[in-house]
Simulated assay, not measured.
Amino acid sequence: MTRRNVWLALVSVFIGPLIGSLTFVAAALAWNLLFYGTDPSANFLLRNWPIVFTSGYVFGFVPALAFAIAMAFLSRQLPKLHQRLIAAPIVGALLSIAILSLVLFGQSFGGFDLAMLLILGSTGAVAGLVCQAIIEPFHPLTAPVQGP
């Protein structure tokens, strides 16, 4: 395990759920505003933001750790920065949808409506991209040493 992977895990576990919670609130509010007008239940998220952020850490720990592990393995296959920055939101979204749908609702992601899938996916995608972008300048991926 490299320093880069350790830092990716730490950033993912400590900052990822915060970013995911902020994204969840923004996505849920935007969804309600776009499709339901001014829904009073949208204010529930804003009134109870400490609960939302706390539950973001409780439920976001496992997807964040899974993201860090997956990106540690994928980074070996993706030598260029832009490849890793494209892969991070995809991996984050897929893991977020898969893990959170099982943990929160006890079923696979096939039983949910489009809104829930998009909101869960957006939380992982944005958190994954931000965490990967934080790591890249401080711990760039070094090229493997070529033998003689």
Rank of each mutant, 00 (worst) to 15 (best):
S75Y: 07
G124N: 02
L8H: 13
A68N: 10
L74H: 01
I134Y: 06
R47F: 13
V145S: 14
N43Y: 13
I99F: 02
L118W: 03
I19Y: 03
I119T: 04
F24G: 07
L29F: 11
F138A: 12
I86S: 04
V103C: 06
F53Y: 14
L100F: 05
M1S: 15
L129G: 07
T2N: 15
M116K: 05
G60F: 01
F35W: 11
H139F: 15
K80E: 15
S55W: 08
V52F: 12
W49P: 01
Q132S: 15
A66W: 03
W7C: 11
F138W: 14
A28Y: 02
E136R: 07
D39L: 10
D39T: 10
P137D: 06
V130A: 09
G60P: 10
L104Y: 08
Q107V: 09
W49G: 06
G110Q: 13
T38W: 14
L74Q: 02
F109A: 15
I134T: 12
L74A: 14
P144T: 04
A30N: 05
P50D: 02
S41D: 07
T38A: 14
P89D: 03
L65P: 08
L104V: 14
G147K: 13
G92V: 04
S75P: 11
L29V: 13
F24K: 03
L129H: 01
L100N: 09
F24T: 00
F112G: 04
F24H: 11
H139T: 08
V145M: 13
D39R: 05
G111Y: 11
P17M: 03
T142F: 08
G111T: 09
S122V: 04
A125T: 02
A64P: 00
R4W: 07
A93D: 03
V126K: 00
A28R: 03
S55N: 13
S101I: 01
L81N: 01
L10R: 07
S21L: 06
S96R: 00
Q132C: 06
L34M: 13
G147M: 13
W31Y: 15
G60Y: 00
L22S: 09
V103F: 09
P79Q: 10
I19K: 02
L33N: 11
A68L: 03
A143Y: 10
G92K: 00
Q83H: 14
G16Y: 02
T142G: 08
G110R: 09
I97E: 02
G56L: 04
P148A: 10
A143W: 06
F14N: 11
V62P: 03
V13Q: 07
T38F: 13
G16K: 02
F59D: 00
L78Q: 01
G128T: 06
A125R: 00
T2H: 10
T123Y: 00
S12A: 15
P79V: 03
P140T: 05
S96T: 08
V13D: 05
L8V: 05
I15R: 08
L29I: 12
T38V: 11
F53K: 01
L81G: 00
F35S: 11
A28L: 08
V103R: 11
V11C: 08
F73E: 06
N43Q: 12
L141N: 03
V126A: 07
S96K: 01
V91D: 06
L81V: 04
T38H: 10
F24N: 08
I90H: 04
K80L: 12
A28W: 02
D39E: 14
E136F: 07
V130T: 03
